[in-house]
Design a protein around this nucleic acid. Structure first.
Length: 260
DNA sequence: AGTACCACCTGACGGC
DNA sequence: TGCCGTCAGGTGGTAC
C-alpha cells in the first residue's frame, strides 16, 4: 500500500529511469483516475522531457522542462514500471508515457483508487489538498508544536494527512508497535517523553523502510510487518497479535507491550 | 475537532 | 463447483 516509503521508492526508481527522457506520446487507458482532461495532460508533456521530481507525503510530482508538473497518486495498488518490451508491460496500466528512446513508463493501478493530475505549482497544490508537512520534513520542535493541543487517539492522528503527510495504516501500526504505544492511546494523555518516542520512532521507521525500499522481505524480523494478522506471535515480546478497529480502520497491535 | 460510517474499486478468500 | 459476503485500505464526503 503506497505510503511515504513506497512513494519514496517509486521516486528513486523514476529518477533512475524515466527522468531526462523525452515524451513521444502519452496514452490514457481510463478516465476514471484522471483528474485532468487527457488532452491537457497530453499537451503538457508531449515533446517535453521530465527533468525533476518531488514527493510530498504519498504524492509524487514530475516536472517537465517547461515547468509543468504531473501529479501521481497511487491509492492502494498503484506503482510505476519502466520497460521496453511489450511482454514486460504491467497488468493494469492506466496511463503510459512513451519516450523517444523506445521505453515506456506505465502508471499501473489495479484498484483505481488514485489519481493523475497536472499542476503548475506544487506548493500550491499541496496546500489546496489540505496536506500538512511531509512526515520526514518536520523537526522535533515542529512536531511538538503540531501535536500540542490535539485530542483523540494517536493512530488516527498519525494517519491524518493534514497533520503530517505520508503515514498510512500499515506504517502507523508499525510506528506504534515499535514505540510501544496502544493505537487508541489518547494524544492529550501522552507525556513529553512519549511524544519524543513517537517522533523518533516515526523517523526511524520511515527512514529504515526507505532503506529497505519498502520491501517487506527486507524488513527485520522484529518489525510488525510480516506479522500483521490476528493470533500471530509478537516478534518483540512473545505476546499475541490482536486485530482492532480504530476510527473505522483495521489495525494490528500487541496488547502485551502496547499499553494505553 | 474528532469519530463513525459510507462510497469508490478489484481480486482474493472463506463459508456454505 | 460456484455463488456470495467480506476484506483490503487511501481519500473524501456526510452526519453527529
Amino acid at each position: 500500500m503506497p505510503e511515504l516509503p513506497d512513494v519514496a521508492t517509486f521516486k528513486k526508481y523514476l529518477d533512475s529511469t524515466a527522468l531526462h527522457q523525452k515524451v513521444d506520446k502519452v496514452e490514457v487507458l481510463t478516465d476514471k483516475i484522471m483528474n485532468v482532461p487527457r488532452q491537457k495532460l497530453a499537451s503538457n508533456v508531449t515533446g517535453h522531457l521530465f527533468v525533476n521530481s518531488r514527493r510530498h507525503g504519498k504524492f509524487l510530482f514530475l516536472e517537465t522542462d517547461h515547468h509543468k508538473w504531473v501529479m501521481l497518486h497511487f491509492g492502494m495498488t498503484g506503482f510505476l514500471k519502466y520497460y521496453k518490451d511489450e511482454e514486460e508491460a504491467p497488468e493494469h496500466p492506466r496511463v503510459i508515457f512513451h519516450f523517444t528512446n523506445g521505453y515506456s513508463l506505465a502508471y499501473d493501478n489495479q484498484r483505481m483508487f488514485g489519481e493523475v493530475d497536472v499542476t503548475e505549482d506544487v506548493d500550491e497544490y499541496v496546500a489546496s489538498r489540505n496536506m500538512g508537512p511531509d512526515a520526514l520534513d518536520v523537526d522535533w520542535d515542529q512536531f511538538q508544536e503540531r501535536i500540542e493541543g490535539k485530542s483523540g487517539a494517536i493512530k488516527p492522528t498519525l494517519m491524518n494527512q493534514s497533520f503530517l503527510a505520508g503515514i498510512g495504516n500499515v506504517y502507523a501500526d508499525e510506528i506504534l508497535f515499535q514505540a510501544e504505544l496502544h493505537p487508541k492511546a489518547s494524544v492529550n494523555k501522552l507525556s513529553g517523553k512519549e511524544f519524543k518516542t513517537v517522533y523518533r520512532t516515526m523517523r526511524r521507521v520511515l527512514e529504515k523502510m526507505i532503506e529497505y525500499e519498502a520491501d517487506a522481505s527486507k524488513v527485520p524480523r522484529r518489525y510488525l510487518l510480516g506479522h500483521r494478522s490476528e493470533g500471530k506471535d509478537c516478534p518483540r515480546c512473545g505476546g499475541t497479535i490482536k486485530k482492532i478497529t480504530v476510527s473505522g480502520r483495521a489495525g494490528y497491535y500487541c496488547p502485551d507491550h502496547q499499553k494505553k
